[in-house]
Amino acid sequence: MAQERIFSDYPQKTARGNRLVVLPFGTSLEIAFKSIKVRFFRVLITTLSLVLAVSFLSFVDVSNDIANGMLASGDPDLRQSLVRAGYDLGPQDVNVASTPKQRWIIILSLLVCVVGIVNAQLMAVTERFREIGTMKCLGALDRFVLRLFLLEAGMQGMVGAACGAIAGTLFALAGALARFGAEAVQQVGLTDLAVSFAWATATGVVLSLLGVLYPAWVAARMQPVEAMRVEQ
């Protein structure tokens, strides 16, 4: 290949050959954050399904934590009130696990949530075709686009899932307070609560990332010529 003038300052291919065009992580983070800020209402709706699904997950989890706390206290009255509330406890049982039915409903709700996220994100990608195409014309690599979408989804997931987990926990605590009284709620282990919170949040982030994977891939593979298309 004759390389003169234009290609004269073309960096030689090395192990770092793919570093010809860069997008520092901080800048990607900044762009992703701004994108969310600008489309806040849109993002809110996308995230809402995640908030609901995660809050349901965390509600079930925390309810079980509370029941376990009550059992662990060894107080026969609390045990009795659990049985009255419909918990299926054998005489020897020392803890409560979620029932298969609960697990099914949780899985279903999470599934519906992911489908909702995929749908919303695909729409977002279509909406942003021109923006993505422009970035590619400016020299963005596929992976920059992919990273931007993943970062956005990660941030959305983090905030949405944390909100959902908090909401679920509060609902579960309020429910338990109404059903079993303050004494029962005091038995709940803080570690258990923290573990449930972390578990629900992590699940939410994973779901959000899972949901954006395909749309982000579509966006990243887009050809820069799309930016030239005139139709609005």
Binding site: P11, G17, V21
Partner: peptide, 12 residues
Amino acid sequence: DAYELAWLRCRK
């Protein structure tokens, strides 16, 4: 290749 094209679009 894709990297060289991106470089071309970016710089030239």
